[in-house]
Design a protein around this nucleic acid. Sequence first.
RNA 1: GGGCCCGUAGUCGAUCGGUUAAGACGUUCGCCUUACACGCGAAAGAUGCGCGGUUCGAUUCCGCGCGGGCCCACCA
Length: 772
Amino acid sequence: MLQKRYDKTIEEKWQKYWAGNSIYNFDENDTEKEIYSIDTPPPFTSGELHMGHVLSYSFFDFAARYKRMKGYNVYYPQGWDTQGFPTEVRVEKKYGRLPPVQFREKCIEWTRDMIERMKSQMNEMGFSPDWRYEYRTMDPEYHRKVQLSLVRMYNDKLIYMDKYPVYWSPELGSAVAKAELEDMEKDGTIWDIRFTGPEGEDLIIATTRPEMLHACGAVLYHPDDERYSHLQGKTIKTPFGDEVKAIADKEVDKEFGSGLVMVCTFGDKMDVVWMHRHRLPLKQVIDYHGKMINSGEINGLKVEEAKKKIIEILGERVVASKPLKQMIKIHDRSQKPVELLPSLQWFADIKTTGKRIKELAHQIKWVPDFGISYLIDWVEGAEWDWVISRQRVFGTPLPFYVCECGKTAPAEESELPFYPENAKEKKCECGNAMKAETSTCDCWVDSSISPLIIAGWPDEEKMKRFYPASLRPQGVEIVRTWAFYTIYRSGVALTGRAPFETILLNGNVLAPDGKKMSKSIGNIISPAELLKEYPVDAIRQWAAMSGAMAKDRPFSYEDIKYSKSFLTKVWNATKFVEGLGNAEKTGLTMIDRWIIGRLNTTIKDVSRAMDAYEYHKAISRIQSFFWGEFCDYYVEYVKHRVYEEKDPTRNAALYTLNRVILNTMKIIAPIAPHMAEEIHSIYSTESIHKQKWPEAGEEYPEDVEKVAELNIIVSQLRQYKSNNKMAQNAQLEKVTITTPEKIDPELLNELSRISKITEIENNEGELKVTVG
RNA sequence: GGGCCCGUAGUCGAUCGGUUAAGACGUUCGCCUUACACGCGAAAGAUGCGCGGUUCGAUUCCGCGCGGGCCCACCA
């Protein structure tokens, strides 16, 4: 017997049962069934699942559960993206500064803890990965494979070390990738500063970065700018007396400031371009901690302090200052400004491989299809190679050796996993000893081989079975990182084949007001809080209702409330049917055939929606069928039959009621697995998640059409009773119904019992219902 | 500046060229009708952003405009 109300205790019960009974195990030995594999996103191990996780993870959990029922051998591993700056920050806060090896140990310990927390939250959400295939990017075995991939890429000349200006975060003390940057609007100041021209005349230059004056390598003007054409080939003096060349360049904006621009190494990205174009000297004035160097009196000051100080020093050479809204680059995780600094870093070649990346991207099915444009745009806009090295501790060590002479060498495959503190001695061709590289990898280097990791790379036999993955689900905001780097590394660089067949993109969950959820606004909705008030299956339905489009959507309390009501509705309907009992299939009435026809159409529609990853369509189809057709009409229609023990059609009704419920549970099982399992347990001792997805059978178009007409008539009679303040079960003496064709006698008889009519007159004509 | 997405009742949203434009939330009215008041029945509420075009016919297709959103580039 089902308990009175559907609640959390039921969900907990089944979660325990599933965990103890290996319901979701991938079958290694089964070579018959087609494999459906999911390259799931390894979440960063922050310790907390957020709504974005819930949305995205629900989608591929739906896919996994659906495909299992469709007869696939579903391979659904789950990993963890463990290494990163946020963990270092938190561990350092807790334990202080430690030597690298111990520090790493503490990070691992910390991360293990975070994983346990997140794992239990994932189990609470009813997600169904096969935990036997869990992986962590911090594991030595994972390191080994990342390093192996890098060594191979190095040998293929895709990885190199070079001195190049890179975005550098003084906060992190590390290079950061272009993809990790965000723009931030800042209220800045632009100063007009007096330089001295060749004739001793004043030249005004506008700048937002006066602290970089010592790095000034040239002053540029537009070739068509008559005000400055006389500067051609001349020398200009900076306020500090440094002599720099005046150069014409067509990318200078005549309208901005005075039309003169000073090039510093490096105030912004344009400076990098100009420096290379005009072969200007490189003068570094900011060090890796964000402090001034090579700048006389302001040495040692931080950038912001240096700015104030230099304005003081310049005194009357500053002729004006104006406020200016400017966009500066900040690092996405630390939210602190980055600088462009020349530095020795490791790069992966993405410029010459761009064409191949696009080719493989085109071989993948993108859902929704426009998602690919994010990647194509990104590839086409790529201006320099991917900086893969980070100056961090908790990360995968780069498996390389570096010599002072500038030569580099990869670690031997046999010495992997490679850790610099245990590295072998290695001699350079030049005769000197090489040093083990101590930088670590960008986290995307780790996660961009997830399809290889789950496919058992480099084992050829396993790769044949598991590569490419069937599905890559991920957030649309990381197309230009995770999807891009994965297609590049797993695809172009290491296998030559697209790493997954389909990529499913989901958007972000916004706060109910449509704004980004953020701690500072305090509009965050957390899964943990929702779980206090809503059953898991309601939250999962909310996810389904939010749609799989790569579109941001505000969180909707309406949707989740509706989901909860729907669970209650199903629960009550099922309890009602359970109380009546079940029966074998016997002579079905038209009404029975109608609802079975509708059920089958629903199964067909839902299957199609599930195949297309359109969970929004799937769930709303189920909801409207079950609530709007089955409960509101069919159940009401058969009440008179099931209340009457001797009614000859009673068993047909019981059969039909149970059939609809059982099949509805099967098609909702991927989305609401707990409720479906509980209700299924009335019928079977086996798990519903081990059942076959129902086939859409007979759709009885004739009966469906006739009963649809009947529904309209019933609805009109309900309306009549409502308008006349009558109870719905009030008896009507006489009703005249005009229909285009005469109503089937069987239905006419049904109608008199359903709507409680003593006498019905049925005429042919335009549809009309009259009482009295 | 470039690319992509979008503009349908108070709100959220279906429709993939064809009679009175789903549904949900909210609002209003009536009902504790032997599954469910976490419910049932009913009502009101939309010139489908604007202007052109294609078509026998457009909310749906195309163009332009206006208005949102996201991404990229630029920002001295």
